[in-house]
């Protein structure tokens, strides 16, 4: 197996799916000649031409609107939103159109689009290039929300998203693009949407996370083992639909749950996971559910000291884990 960066795994999925099915095409700002600002779509233009790596006007509502219309007329569009922060003008198209297509037609039509968007902070992007917007969409029935943390999952989940007949929002943590490398099998495979994965076995406490902070949890779990506490770590991978049975199993296994995400806490994904555990597994718990999340401020601040204060670190996750382990 080849070792691939997270970004390479995503790019491989795009190439392979576009070769497999000529209806698949990519549209977005700078995705063609430039290959995307993060270079995710690099090379698509050369292989597939300008119509399948389509440079779009700077208008997100139209990127998504056109993707929906093209999907209705037989194509399989992959819309790139350059930064997840820029998705706001397209919210109307995503929530009012894409999420409702299948429902309003009683299954006569569907909306096989993928919307890819890099999210998250830690690269000095400040206010409009750092946001975690996933929870805004996890509230919406009719959408599927995917947030892979590893190269293997990124490739397999993107392929699954492209082949999925329903609208999928595919959020890529931009700090992972080049910082995470791992083995990825050559060739075709998919990872099912809606399934979480246990990425570390343990018996003393359970950490539930996704995206960039999953790696912080794994690093902290390694340190915590030196103190004699073994953490079970669950990667949600899909935020809607949540994998209820995996979440409840992981919670019941240790009786202590810490949920970690970069997005802020109030009404975040952790709130839903926490409620799910409280509703179904309260009497299996040995400690109150804990959440470690981004602060309740409206944006990621720019100054390095402020950004550092905002971002979670392995140390912050370790401290929270240790406190819970000792409860």
């Amino acid at each position: 197996m080849a070792v691939k960066q997270y970004i390479e795994a995503i790019r491989d999925a795009l190439f392979e799916e576009m070769r497999r099915d000529e209806r698949v095409f990519v549209l977005g700002e700078d995705v063609g000649v430039r290959g995307g600002v993060f270079r995710v779509t690099d090379g698509l233009y050369a292989e597939f031409g300008e119509y399948r790596a389509l440079d779009f006007p700077l208008t997100e509502s139209a990127i998504v609107g056109v993707a929906i219309g093209a999907a209705a007329a037989g194509m399989v569009p992959i819309a790139e939103i350059q930064f997840a922060d820029f998705i706001m003008p397209a919210v109307n198209q995503i929530i009012s159109e894409a999420a409702k297509f299948h429902y309003r037609s009683n299954g006569d039509w569907n909306c096989p689009i993928v919307i890819r968007a890099p999210y998250g902070g830690g690269i000095h992007g400040a206010l409009y290039h750092s946001q975690s917007v996933e929870a805004l969409f996890t509230h919406v029935p009719g959408l599927k929300i995917v947030t892979p943390a590893t190269p293997y999952d990124a490739k397999g989940l993107l392929k699954a998203a492209i082949r999925d007949p329903d609208p999928v929002l595919f959020f890529e943590h931009k700090k992972l693009y080049r910082s995470i490398k791992a083995e990825v099998p050559e060739g075709d495979y998919t990872v099912p949407i809606g399934r979480a994965a246990v990425v570390r076995e343990g018996t003393d406490l359970t950490v539930i996370s996704y995206g960039y902070t999953l790696h912080l949890a794994l690093e902290a779990a390694g340190e915590l083992a030196k103190q004699g506490f073994e953490a079970e770590v669950l990667d949600l991978r899909t935020l809607r639909p949540l994998d209820e049975s995996a979440i409840l199993a992981a919670a019941r296994k240790t009786g202590k749950v810490l949920i970690v995400h970069e997005d802020n806490k109030v009404c975040g994904v952790g709130a839903e996971v926490s409620a799910m555990i409280a509703e179904h597994a309260l009497f299996d718990l040995d400690a109150p559910i804990r959440r470690l999340a981004g602060p309740e401020v409206p944006a990621m601040p720019f100054s390095p000291t402020l950004e550092k204060a905002y971002m979670l670190t392995a140390q912050k996750v370790y401290d929270a884990m240790l406190e819970l382990a000792r409860f």
Binding site: R23, F25, Y51, R52, S61, A62, G65, V66, A67, I68, G69, A70, A71, A72, A73, G74, M75, P77, Q93, E97
Partner: peptide, 14 residues
């Protein structure tokens, strides 16, 4: 409006 543009784009591509 953009849905129509998208359908027209699909017609062009197909």
């Amino acid at each position: 409006i953009n849905l129509a543009a998208g359908a027209a784009l699909a017609s062009q591509l197909l």
